[in-house]
Design a binder for these strands. Structure first.
Lengths: 364, 364
DNA sequence: ACAGTTTCCCGTAAATGC
DNA sequence: TGCATTTACGGGAAACTG
């Protein structure tokens, strides 16, 4: 049984940026009868694009130390302007092989889009053909297959995949809530990666990949420790929290801001009805000023005439906050004698008129 | 009378970074009798170093639009690996001229050092000779001259130079307090730029240039508005503040941290003696999380059993804080419906033994 | 080993192309 | 004109080198 495709290297290796060096390696997998001449290998690149090679394009194969004695050769310090394929020709034996297709980008801002192409390619075929051809001609994958690949993305790059509830939220986001079962739904390339989410200036995959990056850079231990529910629709959020006691909160990725995480908590309201409040999402720039666990620990709400208070008491469903987060608190203790050290406290000022959002209407 | 040298362009134009494009321009200052042939100009570079030119090295002079009709030619998109001089030859007339000496750097981390060379060169001579020769052979400048140049640095790059008190502090820092009058003291290149300040891992000029950068990026309006005393020795600080009423504070650049600014305030102590407290210096990374004026406005100290309080009340000598800083407060109020917006509050936790708790239990 | 330099390249901003 | 793509380069870090 075939696993959903998973990269062998966590650094998105099939995407090449113009002007950035990379390495390619050819390994001879068949054992040949002893040859007393050297095996020469030459790299060739498709004619459409240009390629700059700093060393020679021809090299001699050698026994690989770290492997079981098979012959290999490595080309280092390659720099491209653009290319689509790398062809390696074994001159001596008239053999030739071809790399997987490569996505060429000119700026890291294109990484997200490039990665989408490679995921899609690997989902749909193993044959080395041009990406755009694969994407346009093959039938689109089913959500059942795609969702598994997405979960693998998370488990590969972080350490924790996506659970059934999280994938269900993603399915609804992508295909709507009308579908009874999403797993047999086809997901088009366009819906996945090209069209914007209705009302938003970004596509589904762009939204998801920015979250993945946020986790990798700022939320890794908390995510792996399962403290982040993360993918929760507003409706589910309300259903989870509405009967919980005040101070119960959950962590959720923003659906309106790219690469943002927020917390939503239950506030005791005067009328007795539970009120849900969410903080403005924290993005990478704010999280580099203060780690998220510290934000949760120290967050305060200031309301007129009341003592400032941390509204976050119990992580949903009801775990005392410190029990969940204590190990992630960062003391960031700086000894800076003779100065008195200082830090940030995250605060919100609560104003009844703009701060509470209207209760979402349940729509099934 | 010659002014201390001032750059004509606020971007440190005589420093060139390898791999970064630059432009050079040659202007013919004498009016020539009409010539019916074109004046060709060619750029040449000293033999020691390599130079890559993206366009032709030869160009034809043309009448300059923005000027009084003199002939000029401009070379754009020049990129160097290394060079020391640019020589421009007017092929047609057997004329040639030479640029000012250039400092070539390979990384912006070398800007500070490069700029020191150029300041020094311009202080000591107008002749185009090799920098290292100038620096080693000429008698060092007097502090009277150097201090004027430093003040001009500040007024050029910010909008406000250095006053007598600030320069005096710099003189003491560089030459010690033993000297009765610093102005006639010679300051060696080594003392200025090469040797570390005793007990510190950086030189005098490095310390000063990091402050200049901090002002340019994060403190410009406040600096220009004369709110920052800045260059104050600990002794002077104490003399200024010791008899002031509690809450009086001043802003001072850190002498121990590169590119840092702190505030020192008078705290009422139980014994009746004034106690001076300084906060851990704010550097560019912290100031990009919260502007300095907002830090001053919102800063709180938390002491056991007391209500958190902003200890900053009067800017030395005694101006009510808001009167000085009101125009610099940044509302940065983000409308992020349906979220409740949030910001940082800078806080310190005060313990008599100067140890700060990691997790302040606070109310603001 | 180490300090002064240079290379590498991400990520933001500006420029360019379409 | 607006969006997609590329170029430019500051700045932190790694690699290099004498």
């Amino acid at each position: 049984e075939k696993q959903p495709w998973m990269p062998t290297h966590p650094q998105k290796p099939l995407i090449i940026k113009t002007g950035v060096q990379f390495t390619t390696k050819v390994r001879l997998l068949v054992k040949l009868p002893e040859v007393d001449y050297q095996l020469k290998v030459k790299t060739i690149f498709d004619k459409h694009r240009q390629f700059f090679i700093l060393t020679s394009t021809t090299k001699v194969m050698d026994v690989e130390e770290s492997s079981n004695g098979c012959l290999s050769v490595e080309f280092r310090h390659l720099v491209i302007s653009h290319l689509h394929w790398i062809v390696c020709v074994c001159v001596s034996l008239s053999l030739q092989t071809c790399s997987f297709p490569l996505v060429v980008i000119s700026n890291v801002s294109q990484l997200t889009g490039g990665w989408a192409s490679i995921m899609w390619y690997n989902m749909l075929t193993d044959e080395p053909r041009v990406l755009s051809f694969i994407i346009l001609s093959n039938p689109p994958p089913l959500w059942g297959q795609l969702s598994e690949v997405l979960s693998w993305q998370f488990s590969t790059f972080t350490g924790r995949g996506l659970n059934r509830e999280q994938l269900c939220m993603l399915g609804e986001k992508l295909m709507g809530t009308a579908q009874a079962s999403h797993n047999e739904c086809q997901v088009s390339w366009s819906k996945f990666c090209k069209e914007n989410i209705p009302g938003k200036p970004f596509s589904f995959w762009m939204w998801l990949d920015f979250i993945l990056e946020l986790i990798k850079k700022h939320l890794l231990p908390i995510w792996n420790d399962n403290c982040i529910m993360g993918f929760v629709s507003k409706e589910t959020e309300r259903a989870c929290l509405k009967d919980k006691e005040p101070g119960t909160f959950l962590l959720r990725f923003s659906e309106s801001h790219l690469g943002g995480i927020t917390f939503t908590w239950v506030k005791q309201s005067d009328s007795g009805e539970a009120k849900l409040i969410s903080v403005e999402p924290y993005t990478k720039s704010r999280l580099s000023a203060l780690p998220f666990a510290n934000i949760i620990r120290d967050y305060k709400v200031i309301a007129d005439g009341e003592v400032p208070e941390n509204p976050l008491k119990f992580l949903y469903p009801g775990i005392p906050k410190d029990e969940s987060f204590r190990r992630h608190y960062n003391s960031q203790q700086s000894k800076v004698f003779p100065y008195i050290s200082s830090t940030w406290i995250p605060i919100s000022t609560f104003r009844p008129d703009n701060a509470c959002r209207p209760a979402p209407k349940m729509c099934i």
